[in-house]
Design a protein around this nucleic acid. Structure first.
Lengths: 140, 140
DNA sequence: ACTTGATCTAGACCCCGCTCTAGTTCCTAG
DNA sequence: CTAGGAACTAGAGCGGGGTCTAGATCAAGT
């Protein structure tokens, strides 16, 4: 069997899927959508061969996606990178804006957490002392 | 003009939309989907009148949704509440499970944040000292 | 009475982000 | 040589979560 290790560097789509957590379907889809920084190389047989750089980029993509960046923005970022040096300011703006959204998401989630924790507390309490009140009861 | 204040308590769909941040469309949609804890009362003319309890429930819903609870789970929760007392343990389990997912989301987001922060740092650095390297440049 | 604006219902439609299918080709192990 | 698994393409399909439309009705102000 020929693996990345035995071959030195370039990876098959399946190997990349494993390493990034994206499905092979998703990887092909991302490519079609122009979310990669460069055309993926192919073997003579037409199979994709991903480089270390491709994988690094995908790992960043995964984090950006996980944190809610829309594919459209990811695409924009990929385009900037593809254009090469000269637009770093814009790339930074894009990342920075996203970072702020992430901060905001964390803030919002923390607020949700506290509301939920309170509600959980109400129920736990109620169950602890066999019965009580203060719960939703539309039949009341 | 007749408002909640002048009327004492019951609210129109528009007023509820304002107070919860949900659109009137979403409110009707939630109702159809069985996400409310009880049938909404109507005026003789057929308009919905929401009570304080409805609004409180919706405010919780909003927090649960914001933190990623799927409508299906929300619906399950609503069903439990609608059934009345006796299933508090299950309600608690549901909330508790969700709370854990929220914790996990926060953890994941924080990790994303740090990756992004690092990337932002790389770009900021690069821009600060006029030019450098270590950036994505597929043209290289 | 009339106008204006909020609501009503049912159902069609939309966006996002993949996922899956079909039918084919490649490639490696036995 | 052959079998079986991995990969290929193009495009259809899907699940989630609403949003929007049409056409009608209701309610309040003037």
């Amino acid at each position: 069997m020929t693996t990345a290790e035995t071959r030195g560097e370039s990876l098959s789509i399946g190997e990349v899927a494993e390493r990034t957590g994206l499905s092979v379907h998703a990887l092909r889809f991302y490519e079609r959508e122009g979310l990669l920084v460069g055309p993926v190389r192919r073997t003579t047989g037409g199979r994709r061969r991903y480089t270390r750089v491709d994988v690094d980029w995908l790992l960043i993509c995964v984090k950006l996606r996980e944190s809610g960046m829309p594919l459209a923005d990811l695409k924009r970022f990929a385009e900037l990178v593809r254009q090469g040096p000269g637009n770093e300011t814009e790339r930074l703006r894009l990342l920075d804006a996203h970072q702020q959204r992430v901060e905001e998401q964390i803030r919002a989630l923390e607020e949700c957490r506290s509301v939920i924790a309170w509600k959980v507390g109400v129920y736990a309490d109620h169950l602890a002392r066999g019965q009580a009140d203060g719960l939703w009861d539309p039949t009341a």
